[in-house]
Nucleic acid binder design. Structure first.
Lengths: 135, 135
DNA sequence: TCCCCCGTTGACGCGCACGTAATTTTTCAG
DNA sequence: CTGAAAAATTACGTGCGCGTCAACGGGGGA
């Protein structure tokens, strides 16, 4: 059941180019095995690509994404390293929470602006009592 | 009460460089008035800078930010234009909502990973009944 | 008045995240 | 085995968001 994907499989799957996958490998985000010279991506690689692309959509840089991916597969044998990973994880967590708060604020403002524009439009469409007509 | 800010005032206020403010002007995000050759920013400009920087932190490009800022001060006289602005606003709104959802998913995963790492760490610190000792 | 420092205006540079073109190598169906 | 398509390698190019440097005012405090 060990399914493998070629570079084109993954590229088509996520609507990216092979160049992008090779670049992610260049910066250490992926380490596909090789059969001869060809890269073979497994299920774990596929999930990582998914996470990388989500990170990009959210505005994170590739090094930042690397940090977060490191959290998922941290070496559970070294205690001090484990503590360090936990600390960095909490840091990222707070950063993400702050980003959610700012996005929520932006969302609320967009809603308010939409409602305001909608009211202006409604007032122009059915002007029963346009203001300034009391003369 | 018309308070004005020099380019350095705003730069220091937001911990950016004057070059950044000039760049935002180059791409049409700001249009400060001039006294001679010097730029003078008013309160509205200051708020716009604040919104621009929040947009950047959230991963939006400068053109995307320009689109959103255009929503706030849309011309309320042209009905067709108003409809168009509302449509683009709703589009941005859905985009922001999708981004919130993805960010929330990332947040949940970070929480889960933190808890998992914490449990591993706890198990290594007080190993009362370490598994594999039942022989 | 003079000088100095802040601001302005180009213009080039740079790091990131890839795009793209050329060339070479590999693979695999027939 | 062979030929052609796909993958790999290498290297340069690109768009964005500024950084940086040089050269040039101009205005305001001593």
């Amino acid at each position: 059941m060990r399914r493998y994907y070629t570079i084109r499989d993954l590229a088509d799957m996520f609507d990216i180019t092979p160049r992008t996958l090779r670049h992610y490998e260049d910066v250490g985000l992926l380490k596909p095995v090789r059969r001869g010279a060809r890269r073979l991506y497994n299920e774990r690689d596929r999930v990582r690509v998914q996470l990388i692309l989500r990170g990009r959509r959210l505005g994170f840089s590739l090094p930042e994404i690397a940090e977060m991916l490191d959290l998922y597969d941290a070496d559970p044998t070294e205690i001090t390293q484990l503590r360090e990973v936990l600390r960095r994880g909490d840091e990222k967590l707070r950063q993400v929470e702050a980003q959610i708060a700012e996005l929520q604020a932006l969302h609320d403002e967009l809603i308010a602006t939409r409602n305001r524009l909608q009211r202006v439009l409604d007032a122009k469409l059915k002007p029963r009592q346009p203001k300034g007509c009391d003369d």
